[in-house]
Simulated scan of single mutants.
Amino acid sequence: MELLPYLMAALAQKRAAHNKALRLLDGLVQLSVKSRSQTAAPASPNDRDRYILASGVSGGWPGWAGWHQNLAFQTDGA
């Protein structure tokens, strides 16, 4: 699970860290999922598509393998 980034006093590009935190919050707070049994990545996901990754998931969007029963979501084209 990815944690929300902290905004440190001397952090360069605070805007990038803040925007990342907002994208993660948006994915979790407005939670609705397209599938709870997704084991392969969709061919062309849309922004705001969310999936609960099923057991046996492999490949897919970068980092899907090994994240069984976790949330994956598409935002800003990634």
Rank of each mutant, 00 (worst) to 15 (best):
W67G: 00
V57P: 00
T39I: 13
S55T: 06
Q30V: 13
Q69K: 13
T75L: 13
L22A: 10
A21D: 00
N46I: 02
N46Y: 03
V29Y: 10
G66V: 01
G60E: 04
A21I: 00
D26C: 08
N19Q: 05
A78G: 06
D76S: 12
L22I: 11
L7S: 12
N46H: 03
I52K: 09
A16I: 11
T75K: 12
L28H: 12
K20H: 09
S37K: 14
A12I: 10
V29R: 13
A43K: 11
N19V: 03
P5R: 06
R48F: 07
Y51A: 00
R50M: 08
S55D: 11
N70K: 12
W61Q: 07
A12S: 07
K20N: 09
T75S: 11
W61R: 08
L71C: 12
W67M: 10
L25H: 10
L11C: 11
L28R: 11
A12L: 10
P42G: 04
S35Y: 14
Y51P: 00
S37P: 02
D76W: 08
N46K: 06
L71H: 12
D26W: 09
R36L: 15
A43D: 07
A43W: 02
P45Q: 05
A10Q: 09
S37C: 09
G27A: 08
R48T: 05
A21S: 11
Q74I: 05
A78P: 01
V57A: 02
A65H: 01
A12Q: 07
L71K: 11
A21H: 00
Y51G: 01
D26S: 11
L4D: 14
L22W: 06
Q13I: 06
E2Y: 14
D47F: 02
N46E: 04
V33E: 14
Y6V: 00
S32I: 15
A78N: 09
A16G: 03
D49I: 08
G63W: 00
Q13R: 12
H68G: 08
V57C: 04
N46S: 04
L31W: 13
L25C: 11
A41Y: 06
G59M: 01
Q69S: 13
E2Q: 15
L11D: 13
F73V: 07
N46L: 07
L7W: 00
P62H: 05
R48N: 10
W64F: 09
Y6C: 00
L25K: 14
R23A: 07
S55P: 08
G59H: 01
Q13T: 06
P42M: 07
P5K: 06
Q13P: 02
N19K: 05
E2R: 12
V29A: 13
S44N: 08
L53F: 02
A10R: 08
G27C: 11
A40E: 10
R36C: 14
L28P: 04
L7E: 10
R15P: 02
T75Y: 10
P62V: 05
E2L: 15
V33W: 15
P45T: 04
A10M: 08
A17V: 00
W67E: 03
N70A: 13
I52R: 04
A40H: 07
I52S: 05
P42W: 04
N19I: 05
W61D: 02
L53D: 01
